[in-house]
Design a protein around this nucleic acid. Structure first.
Lengths: 96, 96
DNA sequence: GTAATATATGAATACTTGTTCATATATTCA
DNA sequence: TGAATATATGAACAAGTATTCATATATTAC
């Protein structure tokens, strides 16, 4: 059966969330361990503002979630799907 | 270990290939069976030119390949990774 | 209360991308 | 050969997106 339009859009949105190198680096970092915004910024070589903007999109797609602790927010992957998608992608670019 | 920049870009490019609803519908159609350009255009409700442009990108990312037969070109998924990525994405939007 | 710090957000700009339209190439058939 | 068909491609425009900069909110320490 063919995909209906709503699902096609939702799928596209999901993959869009991983379609930018900055976001891929953020996800890659969060796979190792949870991290706050400024450390993420340093690790990914982006400004804190740019990271924050991207985190917002990733949050909206439910790929990551934030845990507030004092004035810091620690981000981590929302569930295991994300890691699986990421690893399968890595697999493709290595063996594809 | 953190992802190097080249791999981050390659991963982002891979996911970009699936980050548009038109392309998702094309992939979804090709999962069922190989298909030529004009049938794809009809099935996905796009112009043949638009389909052709998108097929080019998908080809370049090695997600699909074309088999020429007379003046038609039949497209199919390049390998099993694509189907897996697609299904894992579907899984995420259903249960995420 | 004020100052300092961490994160978030709005607006503007620059960049990227998808589609359309016109045209080109390739193949088949007469 | 020429006409018809299938696909591909270049240019142009519209729409979407990522980053920067300035500013806002929230929390902690004093």
């Amino acid at each position: 059966m063919t995909l209906n339009e709503l699902k096609a859009i939702q799928l596209a949105e999901l993959f869009s969330a991983l379609s930018d190198a900055s976001r891929v680096r953020i996800i890659s970092t969060l796979i190792e361990k949870e991290m706050n915004v400024s450390d993420l910024a340093e690790k990914t070589q982006m400004s804190e503002s740019a990271v924050s903007h991207q985190l917002r999109g990733l949050r909206q797609m439910r790929l990551i979630r934030g845990r507030k602790s004092g004035r810091q927010v620690f981000y981590s992957l929302d569930d295991d799907h994300v890691k699986k998608l990421y690893n399968m992608g890595l697999d493709h670019i290595k063996h594809g």
